[in-house]
């Protein structure tokens, strides 16, 4: 097969996606080859659209097609709560559960002293600005349970608490479905600390 041809180029482009190696890219390329032209065009157009039409919501920094995302502009949302996440992908994961009805704030990163990322490098100032109207009563920090996520959570707590807003952290501990004896000591300690009354 021509290594510089259009088919080889499609394989090369597909391998840029996470989790797609040479073989998977080849399978995808053959699948695209078998599609109707209109279907293939739709895939191509969808890729172009997310790059050209998606922007960050001016309020919460989630991805959106309009200046104010669907969540921020929805009047049925609970405006007294803001759930803080690292990336827009977390908003998608939480929205899929259908359990949370408040607003979001996407930091687009985390504080990382080991990687030289300081609070000024992520969207913390925008979050503080959103608290100025006193409508928000609780900020729920849902950053990852690793050192960078914890550092960010501690900084947010230190900065937001003096403003009179309640700061909470999502529960940390043992994942659902595992045997408790296999949990590591930090997860066990965290789960005991975060226990709730039945």
């Amino acid at each position: 097969m021509d290594q510089n041809g259009v088919f080889a180029n499609l394989i090369k482009q597909l391998t840029k996606l996470p989790g797609v190696g040479q073989k998977t890219a080849q399978r995808h390329a053959f699948a695209i080859l078998k599609m109707f032209p209109q279907e293939a065009r739709e895939i191509g157009q969808a890729i172009i659209d997310i790059k050209e039409r998606l922007i960050f919501c001016s309020k919460c920094r989630n991805i959106s097609e309009v200046e104010l995302c669907l969540i921020c502009s929805d009047p049925r949302r609970d405006r007294t709560k803001i759930l803080v996440v690292e990336e827009p992908s977390t908003v998608y994961a939480i929205e899929k559960t259908g359990e949370y009805r408040g607003l979001y704030h996407v930091l687009l990163g985390v504080i990382s002293p080991l990687d030289g990322v300081s609070p000024e490098d992520i969207h913390i100032k925008e979050l503080i600005d959103r608290l100025a109207d006193h409508e928000v009563k609780e900020v729920i920090v849902a950053t990852s349970p690793n050192m960078d996520g914890e550092t960010t959570a501690l900084y947010l707590s230190k900065t937001i608490r003096p403003l009179g807003v309640k700061v909470t952290r999502i529960a940390l501990g043992i994942p659902v479905g595992i045997d408790i004896e296999y949990a590591d000591e930090v997860s066990l300690v965290r789960s005991i600390e975060g226990r709730r009354e039945l």
């Binding site: 002293p113 914890e150 550092t151 501690l154």
Partner: peptide, 13 residues
């Protein structure tokens, strides 16, 4: 684990 070190912002820094 030194979890206590990772539970304090200033200690982390």
């Amino acid at each position: 684990s030194f979890q206590r070190v990772r539970s304090d912002y200033d200690k982390i820094m």
